[in-house]
Amino acid sequence: MSDFQPGDTVKVGTRFPIGHVRTPYYCRGLTGEVERRVGTFKNPEELAYGRADHEPLTLYRVRFRQKDIWPDYKGLDADTVDIELFENWLEPAA
């Protein structure tokens, strides 16, 4: 899996499992910029089912432009949403 640096452009996975995930619906498939690498944490998608015996994942804060999320957004181009996302949901933006 890629190791991203602040400023890298990343794309969020487009997928819709019924299980426990911490990637909000509204940002799936969208492109944002890595704001910081937070550190490594156990995977919530495993912890949710009582499984903790796994390697932790890298967690990032990814910044999205509001106008990229909501086409009808009313506000500045500079308005953003920062979301914490795990590495398994991120890929390099084309």
């Binding site: 299980g19 426990h20 919530p44 912890l47 949710a48 089912y49 009582g50």
Partner: peptide, 8 residues
Amino acid sequence: LRVDEMRR
């Protein structure tokens, strides 16, 4: 209990 278990 882990917070993600409760959330799930």
